[in-house]
């Protein structure tokens, strides 16, 4: 029961409180770039969640059983980025071959994720926070879902911006960032909720 509670806390806090985009500022490029249309935002969010899960499933054992065992911890950054880059390629090839329908909907987003700092950030943070394998997987699921949630919510906010009357020098990115600031503010309301909920 305690394990389940701990996992729930990790899941909820990584979705709402420590949201990767709105609180830790990771994965801002796709957040700003691919959030104009709802379907694309949802596609990107799903693809990132998927890659985060797979990447954690591979990097956690590598860190624990190879790097830590052999005292090669300092190679973490190099190994992780290469593993993620290769992995994304593999996933793309496999999806293309065996599940073409899924590849069609997620395929375009996969190559972009290689250099998405949220994926590398999740794998490194999981090691840093000292999670065991199950906790690490739950935490990456939560981070992915949090990313998806932020993308979808923000796509809704941005569709309202189209009809707004914006001052000349604020057009484009500045007003998008101001909108992101307000969305991020609304997420600040969740701080403390999770601890109280499961206390």
């Amino acid at each position: 029961m305690d394990t389940l509670k701990a996992l729930l806390v990790i899941l909820m806090s990584s979705v709402l409180v420590n949201n990767y985009v709105l609180n830790k500022f990771l994965g801002i490029c796709p957040f700003l770039g691919v959030s104009k249309k709802l379907d694309q935002a949802a596609g990107m969010g799903t693809a990132v969640t998927f890659v985060m899960l797979v990447a954690t499933a591979v990097t956690w054992p590598i860190q624990t059983f190879v790097l830590d065992k052999l005292g090669l911890g300092y190679l973490q950054t190099i190994v992780f980025i290469l593993v993620i880059a290769t992995l994304v390629q593999f996933v793309e090839i496999i999806l293309k071959k065996y599940i073409p329908a899924l590849h069609k909907s997620l395929g375009v987003y996969l190559p972009l994720i290689t250099t998405n700092c949220a994926v590398l950030g999740v794998t490194i943070n999981n090691i840093k926070d000292g999670y065991n394998f199950l906790e690490a997987m739950v935490s990456s699921l939560g981070c992915g879902l949090g990313f998806l949630l932020a993308m979808v919510l923000f796509a809704g906010v941005r569709s309202r911006l189209d009809s707004a009357n914006i001052p000349e020098s604020f057009k484009g990115l500045p007003v998008t960032l101001a909108a992101a600031s307000i969305v991020s503010m609304s997420f600040m309301g969740f701080a403390g909720v999770v601890d109280k909920l499961f206390a």
Binding site: S169, V175, L177, A178, S181, I182, F187, M188
Partner: peptide, 16 residues
């Protein structure tokens, strides 16, 4: 976090 987005947006607008 929210202030970060806001300041960044305003600074880009100023540079624009």
């Amino acid at each position: 976090a929210a202030g970060g987005f806001f300041v960044f947006g305003v600074l880009i607008a100023v540079v624009n």
